[in-house]
């Protein structure tokens, strides 16, 4: 119930039927909700008088929007050039295998979510991943297992 009210309060800040506000409004919602729920997008559609199919089209166009809540531990895998050269693709494969989820989704127990990012800006630490705001440097397929285990046991 709290969540629903929250959506309404955020939407009400924006003037009715003004399509140019679509992206700022979606960003605002995501910032407060952590993701864009179907319910939120339907409400945005009603408020701005934009068909909900169009809203979903816009939201899926941009990488910044997410459609399910993040896990307790949100893992970002850097797939920038430096990390790529040093094997980040195997790191990603290993993470997907260990967590049993695909990049862009959240595990069923809501513990972990996985996101691929273009560059974290820590090329000296490549290949690098971040879990919430903690960076893990020079990871490998072997060290991934330990890192995940440590968070599971936290």
């Amino acid at each position: 119930m709290d969540l629903i009210q929250n959506i309404d309060t955020i939407i009400e800040k924006y003037p009715k039927s003004e399509r140019p506000n679509l992206i700022p409004l979606l960003q605002d919602l995501q910032e407060h909700q952590g993701f864009l729920s179907e319910e939120a997008m339907v409400k945005v559609g009603k408020h701005l008088a934009v068909p909900v199919s169009n809203i979903y089209g816009v939201a899926t166009f941009y990488n910044q929007f997410k459609f399910e809540p993040s896990g307790k531990y949100h893992i970002k895998v850097c797939r920038g050039t430096a990390c790529h050269v040093l094997g980040s693709s195997t790191v990603l494969v290993e993470l997907e295998k260990q967590l049993k989820i695909k990049a862009g989704s959240t595990s069923r127990d809501k513990m972990f979510s996985l996101e691929v990012v273009a560059c974290i800006g820590a090329c000296g630490l490549a290949p690098v991943i971040s879990v919430n705001d903690t960076f893990h440097a020079k990871v490998s397929a072997a060290s991934i297992k330990e890192i995940i285990e440590s968070y599971k046991n936290m």
Binding site: E38, M41, P51, V52, S53, N54, I55, Y56, G57, T60, F61, Y62
Partner: peptide, 26 residues
């Protein structure tokens, strides 16, 4: 406006809101 282009680039597809079945759309 039951259908729209969803996703981006090589993943683009024509779909309904939330890419659900046509029966849920308008």
């Amino acid at each position: 406006s039951a259908i729209e282009i969803l996703y981006r680039g090589s993943n683009s597809v024509v779909g309904t809101a939330f890419n659900k079945g046509l029966n849920t759309s308008s």
